[in-house]
Each structure stands twice: as C-alpha cells, then as structure tokens.
Design a protein around this nucleic acid. Structure first.
Lengths: 239, 239
DNA sequence: CGGTAATTTGACTCTTCTCAAGAGGCGTGG
DNA sequence: CCACGCCTCTTGAGAAGAGTCAAATTACCG
C-alpha cells in the first residue's frame, strides 16, 4: 500500500509492477516510465462477465490485463457473436478502437480480473513527451496484424489443426509472459472455444478427448496439461 | 508526358492524378500534396503474375494500386497458401509490413497493373513535414483492422453467406472508388476465390450457379453482374 | 445438498469436399 | 484463320468431416 490519498488508483508504479517486462514500459527509459506511470489508471478490477468496453463506444484507451483473462467479442448486425480473441494476463487490449476512434468489439472478463488503463487523452499527451511509447504501440500493432493474418489463414484448416494450433498458441503466449506453458487454466467454455474456432462445442469436446487419448494433452475440466507439444505440432504436418 | 528527364517516374503529380480523391492525398492541404508528390515513385507497371513484394522482405513502402488488381498471399511453414485479400484499383497495399518492418505476405498482380510507391524512407521524412500523412495512415490502419475482424467473423459462416458477402464487399469497394458497382471483372479464378473463402473450387462454381438461378447475379465467366444486391443480402438473414 | 449449467458421448444428418469426366475458352503456332 | 493443347469451369456421384439432436454424466454455485 502507498499513501492513503492514492490508495484506490495509485498502488504500484509502473516501474515496480511485476509485469513491466512485458507491458508497455518494456524497453523504455526510467524517466519515460515515470511519465507513463503518472498517466496510467491502475488496478481496476472486474468480476466474471463484467465489461471493460462495449462495441460502438468511443475509444477511451488501451488496457493492460494484470491478472485474469478476457474475451474480445464481435457481433454482426444479425446478432451473430464471434469471439475474436482470448486475452491473457500481461497482454494489451483495446487495439480494435485505437485507430478508428471507436471500439469495434466488446471486451468481457472471463473471470475475476485486474487491469490498468492508459487513457486516450494521456496517450495524446505522452506522444510528445515519450516518443518510445509511439514506437511500442506501433510494434504492438504489427503483432496484432500478424495475429489477424495467422487467424485468417488458420480458419481454413480442418478442425483438428485449428484446435491444436489454438492450444499451442495459448501455451506459447503463457510462456512468453512468464507463466507455465505446459499447464494452464482455459477459462473459455467448450461452447466459447467452439465459437472462437468456428466449431460446434461437441466437436471441441471430442477433439480434446482425441488429443488426450493420443497422450498429447491431459484434460481436467478447464485445466489443460500439454504433455507432448511436438505431438500437437504433428497434427498439422500430416496434411 | 512531362519533361524528358523525368519521363519514367514523374508522370502525373499526385494533385493531378485521377485517384487523388481516394488515394492518400484525400483531405490533405495542396502544399502537403506537393510534398507527398515529390516523394512518390509513380506509375510502375506489372504484368500478370509479377510480384510487388515477397513475404519476408524488408518493408520498402506503401503502394497505391492505380489500375489492375492484385492478391495478397500468405504461406505458412508447410506451404499452405492463403489469399488474404484481393486488392482493387485505388486501394492501398503494404500494411502487412508497415508496423513490423517486414512484409508478412506476398503481393502478386492478377492482371496487367500499375501502381505508385510511397517509399519507407520518404514516409519517415514526410512524417514531420506532413502530419496529415500520419493521420491518414492511422485511419487506413483502422480500416484494415476492421476488415480483419469482419473476415474472421465471416469465416465461421456457411459457404453461401461467405460467397454472397464477398461479392457484396467487392461491389461496395468498387462503388466507393467510383467504378460500376453492379458489374465488374472478378480477376480471381474459381480456385483462388475458393482459397480466399475457404471453399473448394467446385463449391464456388455451384454457388455462383445457384445465385444465378435465383437471379441475384449474372455470371459470364469472370464478369459478374449484380442483379439483385438485396437478394444477396437476404442470403445471410435467412439464418 | 439441490439445481443449474457445462461437458461428454452416441446416433444420425447435412454441408462441403473429393474424385472424375466432360465442356468451354484462350493463346500459340501452323 | 483454324486447330491443337492447356487451363479453367461446370456438373455429377459418392465420401467424409463436422454439425445437430438427444440423453446421460459431471461440475459448479448458492
């Protein structure tokens, strides 16, 4: 705890945050981090199902998920909802509104979660003071683009490959952010996994079972153990 | 033709180009357009199958397609190629390399085409002189993001909806750029349309036939007439 | 501990793919 | 200008992957 006057939003400075190696400050000069830290709204919390932003709202900022997970949901005019992305702790959120000025999707917590916000007005102010921020946002934008391209390409592959790729991608992203890569809690329901990958929930369940029989993974409800990542990789190379 | 010394690359200034209402200069001050025009490499031409850039190459710039069409192709490690986008005259190309510094896809002409290039080094120089350029590139980036999200969402819909949406999207984009919206040359083969939409070429052929029987479109080889756009719209609303 | 939601599993269906054969188009060269 | 060959497109029949429906089991929450 810091001083009482700031106990609600000023908890841990960015420089002291345990995510600062993977969050925006990564690679910044200490002074720049201080500037950033002054603008960031810290440690907001959400419970399962609560919404960080709704589709159609004006862009209010970029978010950094400190703990918990969230889903990015798109809905078309006819009400078909698609989970565009699953966001993990340490990842940045809100890029679907950064350029257009309006969020295209809704961002919903999948479990109790905490996050920091880099507000839009702060972004504008910081842009001059901290050139590195611009750099980092552009780099992250590039990553987002790459992910989009990968996802479009994968959406054409058969069900088994899509699910294997999904699991390996989660594993990779957990590893990248310092979490265990071979064992993680998959906070989506089978229904939501299916929605995300374009599969029926029964197909997800059956394929998880198949991977388990092949001893590539172990499934205990929502807890996934990756037993043989190379075995999962081989799922693609078959075709 | 202008002066002989510049006959190869200095053909028509951006301010005089017939695409300047839809290309980068749109909305810029005349002086800014002059600055831009000084940097742009003009009127390069390609024949069918020729490559503007290869996946993996360093980012060299943003391109504006003046005439003709091109396909943006992604290939994964196993050699599966996916057509990520079909680019129409008046559209900007190269965003898959803008942020990461390296093109993720290859861009290939589908017919005899001409384009202008805004080279990367020019981009850097112009950024200070012409703030509007930055603004425009960010706006276009937003459009690219929206398109990605739409495509991911659509990839989950049934074959019929995907093809109908594809045709309507082409029609809309041709209209946006001042071309006839109800009649256009679809430069992809059935195979390529299928690849782009995640369908077998036979499925594409059958569905085009189905739309034709329903009198939503008329197909003459690669020439597509949109007879009843609302009829095509109704394809989605059924489910 | 009861009730609801999520998951698994089986049987069947349907969309879409694959394979195959034939028709149509187009460019090249005779 | 026509003929040949190649590529593309169309159309049909059968197969396969994935979806739907249904019921039983399990997990979770209050």
């Amino acid at each position: 705890m810091t001083s009482p006057s700031s106990s609600r939003t000023q908890k841990v400075a960015c420089s002291d945050c345990n995510l600062n190696r993977i969050c925006i400050p990564c690679g910044m000069q200490p002074e720049a981090v201080t500037n950033l830290s002054d603008v960031v709204r810290r440690n907001r919390t959400l419970r399962k199902g609560e919404v960080i932003y709704h589709a159609g709202e004006r862009f209010t900022g970029i978010f950094a998920l400190k703990s918990g997970t969230a889903k990015l949901v798109h809905a078309d005019r006819l009400g078909h909802e698609t989970i565009i992305a699953l966001l993990l702790p340490g990842e940045l959120l809100g890029f679907d509104g950064l350029f257009s000025g309006r969020y295209r999707c809704s961002l919903i917590a999948l479990e109790t979660s905490s996050y920091c916000e880099l507000p839009a007005h702060g972004l504008e102010r910081l842009r001059q003071k901290v050139p590195a921020l611009q750099q980092i946002l552009l780099q992250r934008t590039g990553e987002q683009f790459d992910q989009c391209i990968e996802r479009i390409a994968f959406s054409q592959r058969p069900a088994e490959e899509r699910l294997a790729a999904f699991l390996l991608d989660l594993s990779r992203r957990y590893r990248l952010r310092g979490f265990a890569a071979d064992q993680f809690h998959l906070s989506l329901t089978r229904q939501e996994i299916g929605n995300h990958l374009g599969l029926a929930l029964e197909t997800v369940s059956r394929l998880l079972g198949k991977f388990e029989v092949a001893e590539n993974i172990r499934v205990q409800g929502k807890l996934i153990h990756i037993l043989d990542a190379e075995g999962l990789q081989r799922v693609f190379s078959q075709h």
